[in-house]
Design a protein around this nucleic acid. Structure first.
Lengths: 163, 163
DNA sequence: GCAAGGTTTGCAACATTATAACATTTGCAG
DNA sequence: CTGCAAATGTTATAATGTTGCAAACCTTGC
């Protein structure tokens, strides 16, 4: 069991990425979904970045590698990856980030540092349940939750002082 | 005390709007903020719509009234209104909706019906607290919460059956 | 009054994000 | 191998949001 939610500390990110890719391959195989080269490369690019990437950031990286890509190329890959829970879209940033709980069928809660831009995904079932209950108390039938918290990560709180 | 969170039922919306405008004027006066004609008109347009309005929807309405408006006109008014808590931006819709708890200093939770497009704003301090606690448990210092729930409102749940 | 300085608006151009529509290619099942 | 569905390429365009600068407008102190 890998240690999860290692927040903002340095780590072997290459290992992160290859593990994420391996899991993605497994998930897609299980579900008979085709993780084509383009889709896999997009997923890898997103994982390689510590910060959420915009669709056009991904596009730029693809074209800089010689890939003959246009916006639809990227958006289609991203749609696919989202559909299989491999990446999340951060609505408040218009950007995408690798899902750190792929395959676990969850509602993510995102902690977004406004200083360094890093994002930590949490899975807090108590929070999710509280939200769903509040919705149902209004006779509303919840289907999808967008929960994004902007603020300061531990590292950037420290840096605030000596600026 | 007006009855709040009247969810999706028919009501005298004109009265809603004028009450909201009156409250907005009071709030701005209190804070020495200038609720100029353009800003007030934008607020009114947003309130008149039952559904969240995009910035360009507002722009279209303004220009159709003969107002000589460009995108910055609208975005500036919206920035102002957000700053004073008079409207909220719904990130998952790129749209704006009148704040039903203006002046109460709160974190809104939005129930967004995917069928009819109506939005209900809740103020659930227990949910907010749970979210903030989860963030602080990761040593993250929360500043702003985006919480949007997509699903079906009571009315549209009923309509689902006979489609 | 009226001049100085900050705030608000007008305006043009532009940047960013996302989608539509249709042709082409690819992978796979029969 | 053939025919179909899925995936991709390609072009154009839509939708959303911003920058920068000049003009108009309050207000505040004199």
């Amino acid at each position: 069991m890998p240690s999860r939610a290692l927040p903002y500390r340095p780590h072997n990110h290459d290992a992160c990425v290859s593990q994420a890719l391996a899991e993605a391959r497994a998930i897609c195989q299980q579900q008979n979904a085709r993780l084509t080269p383009t889709r896999e490369r997009v997923l890898e690019l997103i994982w390689q970045s510590h910060k959420p990437l915009g669709a056009y950031d991904v596009l730029a990286k693809l074209t800089s590698e010689g890939h003959n890509a246009a916006p639809p190329t990227v958006y289609r890959a991203l749609d696919f990856l989202q559909q299989y829970g491999l990446v999340h879209r951060i609505a408040s940033l218009n950007a995408f980030t690798g899902c750190t709980h792929a395959g676990e069928h969850h509602t993510g809660m995102f902690l977004i540092c406004r200083a360094c831009g890093n994002v930590l995904e949490l899975m807090e079932s108590s929070v999710t349940t509280a939200i769903e209950n509040a919705a149902r108390a209004e006779a509303f039938q919840p289907e999808a939750i967008t929960l994004e918290v902007a603020g300061l990560c531990p590292g950037c709180q420290a840096n605030q002082h000596h600026e």
